[in-house]
Design a protein around this nucleic acid. Structure first.
Lengths: 249, 249
DNA sequence: CGTAGTGTTGAGTCAAGTCAATGGTTGTGG
DNA sequence: CCACAACCATTGACTTGACTCAACACTACG
């Protein structure tokens, strides 16, 4: 059974950041890689531990989070398929946050030394890694703004807009929405709210016809209306090239 | 008047991230550079604009911030001397946030094309840039946790701990404190609080003997006590090598 | 078919925000 | 050097958005 290469989707993404030569691509595809399935809640990265491998998400979703000493949690990022989990720590001694699977999924595991080596030999690849990190950092900045200066309703709407857009770009979107199964507790951790308040906020958006819910699927009947509530401006996503032909702003 | 090279401090920092060869260092020092003084509030980077230069802070402080559409502001980072302002956008089309001088200071201006070129030719420099960015991103993650899951008092204490430590490492610390002249409004923007609440929170810390204030200088009489209140854990700063011999944790 | 996690809702509380007034500081120009 | 203007810090009184606590329903799963 020889399906597509486990790194194919990731490579395509890197190639969309900077044009990679044939040999650059070959170098990526030749990296020693282990593929493995992981259940939900599997811890991929553990705070405080040295890191030797970098996972690339082949399928499923993952979340980055940090905890305060009294146990409160803040989700600081959502990883979608074709995202690399650990490029953020490529040159750091140990992890400063945790990453875990949100859903079951498959990982392609790479060795940090191999990645550093290939980046050192091939400037275009080093650049692609940098862009990968810079794009994620840009999202992090927006999240900080979101949590620190927007009220709950807008904060929620903003997160939903972002995820709908990111899923849509990957072709993961349910029509006019997305399907990232996360609990209201998890949404709260991503938004700096309690699960109770998430519940009420979601209900408010639903009552106003801005979102529809069905199990864990969130549907967005009118994206531009939700975007207006969220004051959503996609500049921070730095979408380098429209992946599909649709015109969703 | 030939003082030290304008990039000397920055180079020393990059060299502390990865060992740079003599020719790497020479390549940095040979970059075309313009030096200029800037007043407080000078806008270095403007959201939405394409970026062609990267400034390195020679002296003074700067802040990164984003605004919501209704004008609320969130400060998403503080830049100290020897920090590069714009490595974050090195490969992105346009800025997604603003940077401005917090105090008067001097900038060394570099061309983005030159930086990209030197990074492409010299892997060690590309790596140093990556580390530079990764360290700043790690701080951003901690700020998100700070704002989203810590109460005002702890949030404030945490920020003060971080700045005291970072200033100390640079040798900028006033004995047991630091001197970053920022208004309470600005502190609020960095913490997701209003200036009124900042005032009360600072007073609370002062009343408990955890900080002392005098004009704009914040003094920390007992750093470890404040760190306990803040639940401060410096792991996220990834301090690669103790710059001085002191043992402040 | 019980158990544990999650969603939903109500009632009451509290941390932080808002509004507003008063002084203090700084800088600038006459 | 003074006077004004603009900005900033401080404080009190009041409001509110979000949290806490608690009860109950629903779902998934071994």
């Amino acid at each position: 059974m020889t399906g597509p290469h486990p790194l194919a989707a990731w490579l395509e993404r890197l190639d969309s950041f900077v044009r990679l030569s044939g040999s650059d691509k070959a170098a990526i595809l030749d990296l020693p890689v282990h593929v493995g399935a992981r259940p939900a809640h599997h811890r991929i990265v553990r705070e405080g531990q040295p890191i030797e491998t970098c996972a690339v998400l082949m399928s499923g979703y993952a979340i980055r989070y940090k905890r305060t000493m009294n146990g409160a949690r803040s989700i600081i990022g959502v990883l979608l398929p074709a995202d690399a989990v650990d490029l953020q720590h490529l040159y750091l001694k140990c992890a400063d946050h945790d990453v875990e699977m949100l859903t079951p999924g498959r990982l392609a595991l790479l060795d940090h030394r191999d990645l550093r080596a290939v980046a050192a030999e091939r400037p275009a690849i080093a650049t692609a890694f940098s862009i990968h990190n810079q794009l994620e950092t840009a999202i992090l900045r927006e999240w900080l703004l979101n949590v620190s200066r927007r009220p709950a309703r807008q904060r929620m709407a903003h997160l939903i807009c972002e995820l709908a857009l990111r899923c849509d770009r990957l072709g993961l979107g349910v029509e006019g929405g997305f399907d990232i199964p996360c609990t209201q507790q998890q949404l709260g951790d991503a938004l700096g709210l309690t699960s109770v308040h998430v519940n009420r906020t979601l209900r408010g958006l639903e009552d106003d016809g801005l979102v529809e819910r069905e199990q864990h699927v969130i549907r967005v009947p009118d994206w531009s209306m939700l975007a207006r509530v969220a004051e959503f401006n996609a500049v921070y996503l730095h979408m380098l090239q429209p992946r599909s032909t649709d015109e969703k702003r």
